[in-house]
Design a protein around this nucleic acid. Structure first.
Lengths: 340, 340
DNA sequence: TCCTGGCACTCGACTGTAGCGAGTGCCAGT
DNA sequence: ACTGGCACTCGCTACAGTCGAGTGCCAGGA
């Protein structure tokens, strides 16, 4: 239970060395590389305690020690200071994000930037519709019985859906419906729209009601209920970088998990007031990712949060550096969104 | 040079066995599993010839034979019949694609379907803008100096771009411009628009010209010139399936290549009149993919082609089955698009 | 009480040797 | 032109031996 300062220092040293070298670290190497001021034998005693407490373990009897998930957890909670970004990194961020013209563009650039800076897999969620409000709704006739509904959100997101009309519809009717939905819905948060949409149907004149009902059901079902979240992913090649030593030999489960949008959303989408979220190995709810760690946070203009972003890598990752990078990128993106 | 029928049969047997077992195949095993009607010794002589001609090779001196890229090439060109799809596969295709509501939806379902059926990496290009024509253009005011341009193509693709206005603009002006661009551009192929767009600017009244110029430059630059192609990808987890025996040990180069949209476009985007394209190992122009094979084809409503789709896998793949699946899926998708 | 040097021990990694077996190339015979 | 036989090659596996990094423990000293 009692972990004195030196034992903590030993744990920190083990984590740092292991992250750097990727090899089990022994007592001799430890005292050589760090100024611990004690002999290897002493370190060994400390290690024995740390192992008993579950912070480190031995791959085999006569090998060095390796941090456990619990060890990493202690490390990030109490032993690491957030590393300030290097000027080069700051410049890279600015260079990358300046010149983005489009929301799509911003998201794409961000995800590639994150992957490149952290050398890991990066995930960026598009601004969540549930957290957006309506800026404009457009109805475009495609044929006599088909409309295209285009929704532009204040976050810059644009979504389009086909709406099948129950009966042929006139240009005037379209104009009218366009005016109505815009009057009622522009400015409202998407999560608050359902009653308003219902009211639109109820108030429509009887001959327009079927058309309005079709429109509203598309609005409700596809935009509000299963609020279509979108996700961008980059850097999967980084998984294969450090050989197969991490991820216990097989990339398959990881790649499988990354193909499921639902999983990705779970990873970075559950945005909480907390600023930064680190899930280490077993702490991940998804089985396939029990050999990986995820660092994620929310982003948005000002202090509001409209979506999540983060990176995924081996449990053996540079937590301080990764956390710093993720935080910095999230801030830059937030600022960028605020400019609109 | 002279490859008589039996030698070809031997090559076919080698390819089939190697694809099935993933192990070098020897002369004894070959006569046992296939009815060749000759002795192992005879087969050995044939193998020696095939090896001399570069169709097969020995991993090491006393191992069985493995097909070379050239051997696979001969196999697909002259030795394989396209395998008819199983009813189960046909059903899977229908089940998967029925119920797609959206172009996005169609593309997503298609790429997942392809990945699942072939158990390889699937790539689907969105209908190319260059091959689309304009169905409708919409201008939506975002602020006094910003418009959003939404273009709907006949293929169902929807693209939006922000347009910065050089000066504040009135609602009437927007209405006017919307009418003008629609009058002139609807129905034209995107590749033919540049002169028409230029004409729009020239013919605009002097006070409207700056605004029209801004609009037209966005149209030309982002939609026509660098005709934004979009790509969907699925099944990367399949790369890690058969261990690391394929792809000579490292997935990294493959994953890297798959992250580059440009590369993906090269893979499946160069649509030719030819119906089906198979590139085997070295035949790939991209270095990172010299250990992989790509099977691709074009798709579109009726006999026109609007985009490409295909799969990527190890050179050791089931070519007849893969080709059949890719072709069938492409046809289904084409039919689906034709219904709009 | 805590730290240290010393020592015996463990065990993985590496090396070298030997036997096995799948597979080949070649050749003489039919 | 095909076949059976035979010597040969060479990767794979098992086994034994050595090396060395690393540990746990203990007795002695601050």
């Amino acid at each position: 239970m009692g972990l004195d300062d030196r034992k903590l220092a030993v744990l920190r040293a083990i984590v740092e060395d292991y992250v750097a070298t990727q090899e089990p670290v022994g007592s001799r190497a430890l005292v050589e590389r760090h100024q611990l001021g004690v002999s290897p034998a002493t370190v060994r005693n400390d290690m024995a305690v740390l192992e008993e407490e579950g912070y480190i373990r031995q791959p085999h009897t006569s090998a060095g020690r390796v941090p456990t998930d619990r060890g990493y957890r202690l490390f990030v909670d109490r032993l690491s200071k957030v590393k300030p970004l290097s000027p080069a990194e700051r410049r890279a961020i600015e260079r990358f994000l300046v010149g983005a013209v489009d929301l799509d563009d911003v998201v794409h650039r961000t995800v590639r930037l994150l992957a490149q800076l952290t050398r890991q897999v990066a995930v960026v969620q598009y601004p969540s519709l549930a957290r957006s409000s309506v800026r404009h709704l457009e109805l475009v006739p495609i044929s006599t019985t088909r409309l295209m509904l285009v929704m532009i959100a204040d976050t810059g997101r644009v979504e389009q859906r086909l709406v099948e009309m129950p009966a042929p519809i006139l240009a005037d009717d379209v104009t009218d419906m366009r005016r109505l939905v815009n009057e009622k819905l522009v400015g409202t948060r998407l999560s608050e729209t359902p009653p308003l949409v219902q009211a639109l149907v109820d108030e429509a004149s009887p001959d327009r009601r079927p058309a309005m009902a079709a429109l509203s059901s598309v609005l409700l079902e596809t935009l509000v209920e299963r609020h279509e979240e979108r996700i961008a992913l980059a850097g999967t090649a980084n998984l294969a970088r450090s050989g197969l030593l991490d991820f216990q030999g097989s990339l398959r489960p990881i790649l499988e998990a990354l193909e499921e949008e639902v999983v990705l959303l779970k990873l970075i989408g559950e945005v909480e007031p907390s600023t930064m979220r680190v899930r280490i190995g077993d702490e991940n709810e998804i089985d396939n990712l029990r050999a990986a760690s995820v660092v994620s946070t929310g982003y948005g203009p000002g202090s509001t949060i409209v979506g999540g972003l983060g990176v995924l890598g081996p449990t053996r990752m540079d937590y301080p550096g990764t956390i710093a990078t993720v935080r910095a990128v999230a801030r830059y993106v937030g600022d960028l969104l605020a400019q609109n």
